[in-house]
Design a protein around this nucleic acid. Structure first.
Lengths: 223, 223
DNA sequence: AATTTGCATACTGTATACAAACTGCAATGA
DNA sequence: TCATTGCAGTTTGTATACAGTATGCAAATT
């Protein structure tokens, strides 16, 4: 924590990880006092951290009742993934036009680094990060920072559900193959096919999550 | 102020209006103490309001140096407007499929209300609000709340520049005609043409703003 | 017994107080 | 002369203290 500029930022970053990691069920009230004790700070930086997380859609404030973790309906999940398709194919197309060798190298390095992590320890937390890093590396050449930031937002919101799916299925390998495919198509400069692959990549992930949620809805409480 | 839930929200709403209204030049430091005195509250709700505005892109925090109003480069403005084209044509298409008479009526009402405001008082502040309300009414039937929220974000970020343009040009009437055109095409169910009109509507506004900014860049300091 | 009222408790939202970081200027030294 | 250091003042970031609102339970009323 010594490296962090402010306590509020530290709390926000750590708490974000805990929420994405599934420590709290959707709709859980986050007690400011308890969090303050967790991090050994006062409630002020905790409140500021919660406000940051609210802007990221992970938490919701209700006046005088505090902050609650959010929960997404199936409809909203579908909407988020549709938006990802729209925005990510958009930037991918831009990125592929004007893609340099060094850009390709960077994306490839991310992929390799991520292979190694997978073969060694490889828990979900790391995967989520590497997945994100690969996509950002692939999109970076588009030089559309605002768009990337929007995509990043959408990813944060859907991240909890993506992780959920990864635990219960063997999606990681499939995703990795698709990543290799994307890189190859990008190298060939085939934007149309790359976008098509990306689209199905995202849509299939969405369907997997929806299926899992509906499955889970049938069986209540399997503690 | 009694109607507001918390002081922080009140400050955020009012301060947003002041920033969008152009009270502060880009890059101005916002002193927490001064704002606290303005609103007769302590610095705590002011800080929370500033954090909210940061998440909207109107303000930026630098650790231990406080909050500064943001300023967009021409490249970023272009990027934002391109995103608006992408997202707004996307929802408009969805909205036009499955558009009911009552939906049309609502959008039309907004347009009429806004005519009246234009003929009576009609300052820029109101125009910005009505413009936003009309677009939201037109898009609402798509039933894509996350997408609308994203569009709303983009509009907030670009709002300052749109207003700037309105002051110096006679864009309002032109925009109004385009609004009528959009409504008519929507009524006819012609999504393709409606999207095309919307696209040029947004792109021309963008070019107008860019031209104005570049004009202004040539003549430094006309105090 | 069920519903309502009043009260105690707990928690949030905000004010005040304090500590740490930044800024600018003057003094010092090369 | 210019760069560097040290210090004072200012401002931010955070802790503590207080006020107002929501929640839950018990007594009271029908």
């Amino acid at each position: 924590m010594a490296t962090y500029k402010t306590r509020a930022q530290f709390v926000a970053d750590d708490l974000r990880g805990r929420i994405l990691g599934g420590e709290f069920k959707g709709g859980t009230q986050l007690r400011q006092d308890a969090l303050a004790k967790d991090y050994d700070v006062s409630r002020i930086p905790v409140r500021e951290a919660l406000l940051t997380l609210e802007s990221e859609g992970l938490v919701e404030f209700h006046a005088h009742r505090g902050a609650f973790t959010t929960e997404l309906s199936v409809a909203k999940i579908r909407e988020l993934f549709d938006l990802r398709v729209l925005l990510e194919t958009y930037v991918l197309r831009h990125a592929i036009n004007g893609l340099t060798d060094t850009d390709l190298k960077k994306a490839e390095d991310t992929l390799l680094e991520y292979d190694q992590a997978l073969n060694s320890g490889g828990d979900i937390d790391n995967w989520s990060e590497y997945n994100f890093a690969f996509h950002q590396a692939l999109y970076a050449p588009a030089e559309l920072p605002e768009t990337l930031s929007l995509i990043s937002q959408l990813n944060t919101k859907s991240d909890r559900y993506i992780r959920m799916q990864l635990v219960y299925t063997q999606e990681i390998e499939k995703a990795e193959q698709e990543h290799r495919g994307l890189l190859e198509l990008a190298r060939q400069g085939d934007a149309d096919q790359a976008c098509e692959l990306l689209k199905t990549h995202i849509q299939e992930a969405c369907e997997g999550i929806v299926a899992l949620l509906e499955e889970r809805a049938k069986q209540p409480e399997t503690s």
